[in-house]
């Protein structure tokens, strides 16, 4: 049967993202929700909703899964997020040579060729520092919603220095900052700076060749973006919906599978 739609499902550690493309490769729909306990069901629910809206059946869709839960999803094929990110960024930003992606439990830096091939990549050590989870833990300690961290950090005039790289120790450090009565926005700015420093150090392993694109849910955090821009002087491009790039890449790879078959 000729496939009418191409879908990318990215079941991440924190959120599940689904992107649907039509036969021409135009984005028809995208959605995301907390992965929770059953990311597979979440993905299924999101995709079913989309298909209902466009009036398509499951058999008319080629699905590629990515993310930590990718093997659980009954997709046509699965790819690692690295390959998916590279594929999406080559489409969105043809001049991009480096992708910095900060997700829930991973941060990664990918160097890509002009054709969108992965040349090299580095990922965070076996440690939550420099990831979305790190920010969540800190937001909890500060009793602010994680979405608010960015706005708070922007208000800071004197960011504090959070020196611990370990999430648990950094949390104690934040708790003692709170106890000392430090302003919330300065603590938050310090946290954002810590994430930026950690990820940029990781980036040096593969080299930061421009153009650099920043993706992943954390790219929505203005505090981290600001801290990254302060440390990395050159332009930093951010897609309008930075959390769905891996899902988009998966959908594009699903399209590639279709062309391979012909």
């Amino acid at each position: 049967m000729k496939k009418k739609f191409f879908c990318g499902v990215d079941i991440g550690s924190l959120t599940t993202k689904v992107v649907l493309l039509d036969a021409k490769g135009e984005m028809v729909s995208r959605a995301w929700a907390r992965s929770g306990y059953a990311g597979k069901e979440v993905a299924h629910r999101l995709l079913s909703g989309m298909l209902e809206k466009v009036g398509a059946r499951q058999e008319e869709v080629t699905v590629v899964a990515t993310g930590y839960g990718r093997v659980t999803y009954p997709a046509d094929r699965e790819f690692s997020e690295i390959s998916c990110q590279a594929r999406a960024i080559a489409r969105l930003f043809p001049a991009a040579r480096t992708v910095i992606d900060i997700g829930g439990q991973d941060s990664k830096v990918i160097r890509i060729s002009p054709q969108g091939r992965v040349l090299d990549f580095a990922m965070n050590d076996k440690c939550a520092a420099g990831t979305g989870r790190f920010l969540e833990v800190m937001a909890q300690a500060l009793e602010v919603p994680v979405e608010e961290l960015g706005h708070l950090a922007e208000k800071s005039s004197r960011p504090l220095c959070i020196s611990s790289t370990c999430t648990v120790f950094a949390e104690s450090e934040v708790v003692s900052c709170i106890a000392r009565g430090e302003p919330k926005e300065d603590i938050v700015a310090g946290i954002c700076a810590a994430v930026a420093a950690r990820v940029l150090a990781l980036a040096e392993r593969v080299g930061l060749e421009p153009e650099v694109v920043f993706t992943g849910g954390v790219a929505r955090n203005k505090g981290v973006v600001k801290a990254m821009r302060e440390r990395y002087a050159r332009a930093l491009a951010i897609p309008p919906e930075p959390e769905i790039t891996a899902a988009l890449g998966a959908a594009l790879l699903a399209m590639d599978l279709g062309t391979e078959r012909k």
Partner: peptide, 27 residues
């Protein structure tokens, strides 16, 4: 580069390591 230990299994996060290995082989 994958992080692990020769004999201490606590230093080995299989999921994380194999995820990287897959990305590497795909590339």
């Amino acid at each position: 580069v994958v992080e692990a230990d020769q004999t201490d299994p606590r230093a080995f996060a299989e999921e994380t390591v194999l995820n990287r290995a897959q990305a590497f082989l795909e590339a």
